[in-house]
Design a protein around this nucleic acid. Structure first.
Length: 647
DNA sequence: GTAGGGTTAG
């Protein structure tokens, strides 16, 4: 005689389809079909089993044999179908159930519709529930709100919420989550303020929303004032810091959490390890790796992938590879991360080997190889990989195109660049700020100004980078007036604020044309109006501009006032100016200083010896030559001046 | 039966 407890025991031992079907036979034969509760035990097991190919169908056949089926046994079947990952079966099953639904039935169906993001079926469920008299059930309304919310029907969710007349914590959290999900900060803040109780669930939602919107202070405020926190709340706060590039704060938050003895889980550690990766302090990453192992999380794929990424970022590509080799179910992320790790560390060969061994290369894999080659100064290899990608029929996307264009820029490969631009046009790709800027750079570098300006003119989104590309490009091509006009246009447009790079373009335009007054004006403008601290390149431009125009003393003063160590171009500009304008006294002083500062730099020797020669100081020329020989200056063009002076 | 957190590749 089969009883419910014997049935449970048999099911616990059941390990084959044959055995399960035997149990079904026994079950039917023993008359337990009259017992709806016993039938539910078997239904639950059968619906979720992996022993049968279509478990829900078996359950359904079984359910039809049950002598007095009730709503409970029907709900068991529906829930099993949902849990088995087959929510599409729920509604068809519902329409042919052998018993009337109860208050538990429609919430399960609403969850099934939510899982499928199917609002049309969801509305049917809604009206059926009302028809059966469950319209006021709190569980049902909460479930429907969730369903409408994940289907993007915020207004319907709100209507269900407003209908009331009773709300519980879940109702409030669900409507809050609906606004959070939609990214609606104002509404979410309003709901959060009106909630009768703000539990850990609500706090986590708000922190996560503020984090996504870059509102770190607001997130921190909600977190600090929260009466109750749990691991979700902590994760949301840590992730908020992490995604807003506040890595030290993220890790500090994590150590506070650990001090309070909270346990760790997968989502938390993914965020924390990601923060370690970006803070590039390998010791932190290693400590987290140890913790992940102790917590038993290291077999999880997401964790393995973020660890591979972390070791690559912290320049320990060997450790990354060790993890890669030990993983037994790797995915695209694992392969692409490992390849990117090699490229980031300059191991192009290893990356290529792994790339060639990769079973299914997606467009990210190809694009990783292409941009990695570009970053490692192998632009012609990048173009070869791109041709191969096209030959394999893989469609490049915007990111790929940008890398390819920048390879063309590096190689001044105008024809190739034009053909890629043709591809962009043929596929009607939207010209984003990044893509447009890279096209402008490429055309400017190749001297094809018209094409560069055409790209600029059709761009809808004109941020600072594309203005800069135009201004720098025009200056580089000697179109000084046009470059300065573009700067005025940029200021007037209000679409972008001039930045450091803009002024590099503007100042080099002035230098190109010897516009001293204008140069001085822009150098002041950038500091006073735009609060930009000049960098070494801005100083270099100004020194050169002033020096060439004969303001040698002013150039020298400027170089002396630099807050950073002047570089070779800056010194060279000053020395060249001294020589050109016969400021031999300053030139000699500066030249001697430089020759001592960088004895192996032959350019300084050349200019100094030129100055000596001009003054007829042959002894000094000879002394300089001797000291150059002693110091093994490799290639000294300065000799020519010496030879000439003797002839 | 209903509500919340996460990341990783170019």
């Amino acid at each position: 005689m089969l009883t419910v407890s014997l049935l449970d025991a048999q099911l616990a031992r059941c390990s084959s389809a044959r055995h399960l079907l035997q149990i079904h036979g026994q079950f039917i034969a023993s008359g337990l079909l009259a017992d709806a509760f016993a039938a539910s035990r078997l239904l639950l097991f059968t619906s979720a089993t992996r022993l049968l190919p279509l478990p829900v169908h078996h359950s359904f056949r079984l359910l039809r044999l049950v002598r007095c089926p009730n709503a409970f046994s029907c709900n068991t079947l529906l829930k099993a179908a949902l849990l088995a990952g087959t929510p599409h079966l729920c509604l068809p099953l519902y329409t042919s159930l052998p018993a009337s639904p109860d208050a538990y039935t429609h919430p399960i169906l609403a969850a099934a519709c939510a899982a499928r993001r199917d609002v049309n079926e969801g509305r049917q469920v809604h009206s059926h529930a009302i028809k059966h008299g469950f319209g006021d059930d709190l569980y049902l309304r909460n479930g429907l709100m969730h369903m409408y919310s994940v289907c993007g029907c915020l207004w319907d969710a709100r209507r269900v919420f407003d209908a009331g007349p009773v709300w519980d914590a879940v109702s409030w959290n669900t409507i809050l989550a609906a606004y959070v999900h939609a990214g609606d900060v104002d509404q979410a803040v309003g709901v959060f303020a009106r909630m009768p109780q703000r539990n850990a669930t609500a706090v986590s939602s708000m922190v996560s929303l503020f984090g996504r919107r870059g509102m770190v202070d607001e997130a921190r405020g909600v977190f600090d004032e929260a009466e109750c926190r749990d691991i979700f709340t902590w994760t949301a706060m840590i992730s908020c810091f992490e995604r807003n590039s506040m890595f030290a704060e993220a890790l500090h938050m994590f150590s506070c959490m650990r001090r309070e003895m909270w346990p760790v889980d997968e989502a938390l550690m993914v965020s924390v390890v990601s923060a370690c990766a970006q803070s590039e302090v390998i010791r932190n990453g290693e400590l987290c790796h140890g913790l992940v192992i102790r917590a038993g999380l290291c077999s999880l794929l997401n964790i393995q992938n973020v660890l591979i990424h972390m070791y690559s970022c912290c320049l320990d590509v060997v450790a990354a590879r060790r993890l890669f080799d030990s993983g037994d179910c790797l995915d695209q992320f694992s392969w692409n991360s490992m390849i990117a790790g090699y490229l980031k560390n300059g191991h192009v060969e290893n990356a290529m080997t792994l790339f060639n061994a990769m079973p299914d290369k997606d467009n990210v894999s190809w694009s990783t190889m292409i941009s990695g080659c570009v970053q490692n100064n192998q632009s012609s290899d990048a173009l070869a990989v791109f041709d191969n990608m096209r030959a394999q029929g893989v469609r490049p996307d915007e990111v790929t195109i940008v890398s390819v264009i920048s390879a063309c820029t590096n190689l001044s490969a105008l024809e190739k660049g034009k053909s890629v631009h043709d591809y962009v046009r043929q596929n009607k790709c939207y010209i984003t700020l990044v893509l447009g800027t890279s096209l402008i750079d490429m055309y400017m570098k190749c001297g094809y100004l018209e094409a560069a300006m055409d790209v600029f003119n059709i761009m809808e989104e004109k941020g600072a980078p594309c203005w800069n590309a135009v201004i720098v490009g025009l200056a580089m091509n000697g179109l000084v007036t046009k470059a300065l006009e573009m700067f005025s246009e940029m200021e007037a447009s209000g679409t972008a604020i001039p930045n450091e790079i803009t002024f590099i373009g503007v100042l080099s335009a002035c230098r190109h044309a010897g516009l001293v007054e204008e140069g001085r004006h822009f150098f002041k403008l950038m500091q006073h109006k735009y609060r930009i601290v000049p960098n070494i390149r801005h100083y270099g431009c100004m020194v050169d501009l002033l020096g060439r125009a004969g303001y040698v003393k002013e150039a020298e003063d400027l170089i002396e006032s630099m807050p950073m160590l002047p570089d070779v171009p800056a010194w060279g500009a000053l020395l060249g100016a001294c020589w050109k304008h016969g400021e031999n006294e300053v030139g000699e002083r500066v030249g001697r200083k430089l020759v001592n500062l960088d004895p192996r730099h032959d350019g300084f020797h050349t200019m100094l010896s030129n100055i000596y020669a001009k003054e007829g100081m042959w002894q000094s020329v000879n002394d300089l030559r001797d000291s150059m020989k002693q110091r093994h200056v490799p290639k000294v063009s300065g000799y020519s001046a010496v030879e000439m002076s003797h002839s």
